[in-house]
Design a protein around this nucleic acid. Structure first.
Length: 867
DNA sequence: CAGCAATGCAA
DNA sequence: TATTGCATTGCTG
């Protein structure tokens, strides 16, 4: 018969590991840090899944001094105190173990190690196979044929399994000799002294020769080296003491009945409740929700007659069973649900589409992952008249900082239920029918949080719009891409050659590590800044080294061109859809914490513009024959939003009088008349204006402007003097955030900031900056979303053939038939400027052109003369 | 091959 | 030790 397996965990060392492996931002909503408990529990669960032990126990240290401290006062004397954020987590971890019904071992005067050693040896005698799980290498001394150690090297998943063979291979010793080794070499982390001058290598050598510490000491004569002989004689007692300290006890007086360590069914209600309280939702799905869902009864519809006979309520939930990659999906079937009944229709695509067209024009529809499905429908020529609910979007509004969730997680967290593992068809039907329950629950929560109108009037309509944007895509000239790629390749090759020449050797210019060696070691340039892993070679560092060596400008140029080629030019070709000749990015509505959209695969929101070389990339984005690209961007929305929400007189006045805001700020800070403000003052003022919206610090501003801290500090102080209501806004917003735990945009979008009351300065400051920035950035995002909806409706209702292609935070890019350019341009401006009414006017600049690079201004817009 | 660090592009 | 993102290359385990 196979031996039963016992797993013994060292609770202390594992909690420490988990604490340092996971960010302390992992908290409950009330700010209680739970990172270590979470990591520990996850380690425990993966152990249970992978090893499936029959028995389980966890050992902890107790704060009381142990026999080791009595023997040697300095034992562990160099240990830092347990971090404040970790301390309370021991209690919580024990609560988790209690809920899981896992036995806990603690004994005054002994460390967790000793308990584990004793238990392991007893268990071995009784015929068990033992696995010790720990973050402490000392335990390796316990290894035998039947006892192995899973050593958590770092993080929470970097685990090395040591059995006898592996240990011998690595240490070239027997496990018990590890104690002798510690006796000789000591252990810094536990403040065990060992013998001076003996380290890893020597200790192994000596033990291989003499077998044990005692034998080494008994044969000091035979030890090589005069000095070493002397030290060993002198420090023999110290060595013996060190060995004693390092030896894990295996004779702790413990009464154990191993049968009591049998693992219970830990997937119980108590555990579920505790995990809910700790907000461990991902772990909840691992143990299964507390209420298993019955598989829904549903009717299978296999012919068109049955389908058409269906009598559905006004609100239906629908899930299209789509397979295949984006824009090439196929429809395998449709799951349909009303409050009372559910169906799965498995028919030919054409028949399904016919029916869907009718449904989507006459019903209000609940959908999950709606954007993907709507995009498919639009591709088939079907419009969605009313999307009435989408749970992922609702959940995002409630908790925008959390990572995007799966449908199953919503069911667990909002309905406290779990989806049974069933066939794909069944789960699709179940999912569809659950949309009604989720709607009830989530709409109530949105209502409570005053988020319902943002949900219904902004986010839901946006879903269909984004589907349309993605489907439309933007035309890209592959010839132009090709040309750019060749041009860049040539430049790069030349630069590379010159750089190698100057360096006197070939190396990988892309490797900051190799580059660092060349610059700072070989060429002896001064080190400006260091990173965690070595020298920094960032653009700002290179800028400071400019002039010191001819290779520096070459490296900067190399960086610029390879960046452009490898990030923008070359990858773009792969994204061109062969059928449409266009690039169809994915707009994500559920990513950012502030309410902005994001774009990926490819990211079309970070195409270069600031430098001429980069800007050329925009040339590849073109309008179709007979059309133009129209770019409409808000002029300084965020600062205008700041003017509105802070109600600052000076700021508002500037906008009301149409004064360039950076010039105005410059005149205030530098005490100049408006017409005396020069280029440099305006540049600095611009940085200050931006900085304010990001929750400025003097240090940050100094770095950005390459000026002294004192100077930066003065600018900030002067700014607040001249715009006092802005200062007031910042103070009251932070105070409010501390009181309520969240901040809101002008349109009630919410963001929780659990770290705002943290005792950790860095975390707290970071949360404070978020508190300042989120209402500004978020309100701007709200405005743009509303504007998009207005522009979209305008185009649809006005029977224009123009299309929105992209949104770049404060800019919309449209493709407009030349015939309607004038009219659409003016209407877009109007809609965007009137999207919301603020105390300062919104201003939109318009440009048009055959491509996204060379564009001409359309009258009226403010011309930014200087920058 | 996954995940992290360094770097850099946009608003 | 300025906000929000996405993506690249190098490098490590």
């Amino acid at each position: 018969m196979q031996k039963k397996e016992l797993s013994l965990l060292d609770g202390n060392s594992l909690l420490y590991r988990a604490f340092y492996a996971l960010p302390t931002t992992l908290t409950k909503s009330d700010g209680t840090v739970t990172n270590a408990v979470f990591g520990f529990t996850r380690m425990l669960f993966s152990l249970l899944e992978e090893r499936e032990p029959d028995l389980l126990g966890v050992a902890f240290d107790l704060p009381a001094p142990t026999f080791r401290h009595q023997e040697y006062e300095e034992y562990k004397g160099n240990r830092k105190e347990t971090p404040d954020e970790l301390k309370p987590q021991f209690r919580i971890a024990k609560e988790v173990l209690e809920a899981l019904e896992v036995p806990i071992f603690e004994k005054e005067g002994y460390e967790a190690d000793d308990l584990i050693g004793t238990l392991a040896q007893k268990a071995e005698e009784e015929g068990y196979q033992v696995t010790i799980v720990t973050g402490d290498r000392d335990n390796l001394q316990l290894i035998t044929e039947n006892i192995q150690v899973m050593y958590n090297k770092r993080g929470i998943s970097d685990i090395v399994d040591y059995d006898l063979e592996k240990f011998r291979e690595e240490y070239e010793l027997e496990p018990q000799q590890l104690i002798d080794k510690k006796g000789l070499m000591g252990d810094k982390s536990d403040n065990i002294p060992g013998v001076d001058g003996i380290g890893k290598k020597t200790s192994t050598k000596l033990l291989k020769e003499f077998g044990s510490l005692e034998n080494v000491l008994a044969n000091i004569d035979q030890v090589g080296g005069k000095k070493r002989k002397a030290t060993l004689r002198e420090q023999a007692d110290r060595a013996k003491l060190s060995k004693k300290l390092a030896e894990i006890k295996v004779d702790v007086p413990l009464e154990v009945d191993f049968s009591e360590l049998v693992l219970s069914d830990y997937k119980n209600q108590q555990v579920y409740d505790l995990f809910m309280e700790l907000e461990f939702s991902s772990l909840i799905s691992q143990i299964g929700g507390h209420q298993k869902l019955e598989v829904v009864d549903y009717q299978l519809i296999e012919n068109q007659e049955e389908l058409e006979k269906l009598d559905l309520t006004k609100e239906v939930a629908i899930t299209l069973d789509l397979t295949g990659p984006k824009l090439k999906q196929e429809l395998a079937g449709v799951a349909v649900a009303t409050l009372e009944q559910s169906f799965y229709c498995n028919l030919a695509t054409d028949e399904l589409l016919n029916w869907l067209e009718d449904i989507f024009t006459t019903k209000e529809v609940l959908m999950v992952e709606a954007k993907e499905q709507i995009r498919y429908l639009l591709q088939q020529g079907i419009e969605v008249k009313k999307l009435s609910f989408e749970p992922l979007v609702a959940d995002y509004l409630l908790k925008p900082s959390e990572k995007e969730k799966e449908f199953e997680e919503l069911v667990t967290s909002h309905l406290q239920r779990e989806i049974e593992e069933v066939t794909e068809e069944e789960s699709l039907v179940l999912q569809t029918s659950l949309l009604f329950d989720l709607e009830e629950e989530l709409v109530a929560k949105l209502e409570e949080n005053e988020l319902l109108s943002l949900f219904r009037e902004v986010e839901l309509p946006l879903v269909s719009m984004l589907a349309q944007l993605e489907l439309t895509g933007i035309k890209v000239s592959s010839e132009e891409l090709e040309r750019l790629s060749t041009k860049l390749a040539e430049k790069i090759a030349t630069i590379e050659e010159q750089a190698f020449q100057l360096a006197g050797e070939e190396f990988n210019l892309n490797s900051p590590k190799q580059l660092g060696v060349i610059l700072f070691e070989k060429l002896g340039l001064p080190v400006i800044k260091r990173t965690k892993t070595g020298y920094s070679t960032s653009a700002s560092v290179l800028e400071k080294l400019e002039g010191q060596h001819d290779i520096i400008p070459l490296i900067s140029e190399y960086r610029t061109y390879t960046k452009l080629k490898s990030t923008y030019v070359d990858p773009l070709s792969d994204y061109i859809n062969q059928e449409t000749g266009r690039i169809h990015t994915t707009f994500n509505q559920l990513v950012t914490a502030t309410g902005r959209l994001s774009s990926a695969e490819p990211n079309l929101q970070n195409i270069p513009i600031r430098t001429e070389e980069g800007r050329e990339i925009r040339q590849v984005f073109v309008a179709e024959e007979g059309k133009h690209l129209l770019a409409a961007d808000y002029s300084q929305v965020e600062l205008r939003v700041l003017a509105h929400i802070s109600q600052d007189e000076g700021l508002k006045e500037a906008y009301q009088q149409g004064i360039d805001i950076h010039t105005k700020t410059a005149s205030e800070i530098f005490g100049l008349a408006l017409d005396e403000v020069g280029r440099e003052e305006r540049r600095k003022a611009k940085a200050v204006n931006f900085g304010i919206a990001y929750g400025i610090s003097d240090w940050g501003l100094a770095k950005r402007l390459n000026i002294g801290n004192q100077e930066a500090k003065e600018y900030i102080e002067l700014y607040f003097e001249r715009y006092p209501q802005v200062k007031e806004y910042i103070d009251t917003t932070i105070a409010q955030a501390k009181r309520k735990g969240y901040v809101k945009t002008l349109f009630d979008r919410k963001r929780y900031l659990p770290q705002i009351n943290s005792k950790n300065y860095h975390q707290r400051s970071f949360a404070e900056r978020m508190a300042i920035n989120t209402p500004i950035q978020g309100t701007a995002a709200d405005i743009m979303k509303m504007a998009m909806i207005d522009v979209f409706n305008l185009i649809n209702n006005g029977e224009f053939s123009s299309q929105i292609l992209l949104q770049v935070h404060d800019e919309l890019v449209l493709e407009v038939p030349t015939a309607e350019l004038e009219e659409v341009a003016q209407l877009v401006r109007e809609r965007m400027e009137q999207a919301v009414e603020l105390d300062v006017e919104l201003e939109v600049d318009l440009k048009y052109g055959a491509n996204w690079n060379q564009m001409k201004e359309i009258e009226g817009g403010e011309i930014d003369v200087i920058d």
